[in-house]
Amino acid sequence: MNMLMLLLRNLARGPSTDAFPFGDTFTPERLRGRIRFDPELCTGCRLCAHVCAGDAIHFDETDEGLRFTLWHNTCTFCGLCEHYCQTKAIHLTDDWHLAHLQQDKYAMIEQGVVAPAACAGCGCRMTAPVPALTALAYRAGNRRIEHLQTLCPDCRRKAGVTGGRS
């Protein structure tokens, strides 16, 4: 009898079905979906690749600079990369439209190249720390810090010993 009352109530209240795929659907506010990478903010620390559970993130050195590659087809969307990224160069958007045909399987990637800089000391190629990182580490910068930022790790070490005089 309870069941019949329930059925009648269901009939009276009408369907509760989402219009999707024929219409729009809702997306929860904090849904973790397709990943966006911003090379302007990346310092090349590679912590994201280290914490990635699905081994989805790869860094490789190319002629243009440090290349970040993420393959959505092995990403678990756990959000650890975004959590550990100090400058939030990695961001999980709420875009969940990831279903794709087989021929696009290997096109489901997010890629970005971190442009290299030249060391002000020795002139070697390096990945410069980004301003966002300095802002996080030191509330206000000074001339010495700004100078250190233009140096490669080797030169920075030397500068640290000599007190900034090169």
């Binding site: 989402d18 999707f20 795929p21 659907t25 849904l31 699905g54 959505h72 087809n73 990403c75 678990t76 969307f77 756990c78 969940w96 439209h97 990831l98 279903a99 794709h100 045909l101 087989q102 399987k105 489901m108």
Partner: peptide, 12 residues
Amino acid sequence: VNVPGCPPRPQA
């Protein structure tokens, strides 16, 4: 067809 996700949401 591939539907990535761990797991994918029902709409996907």
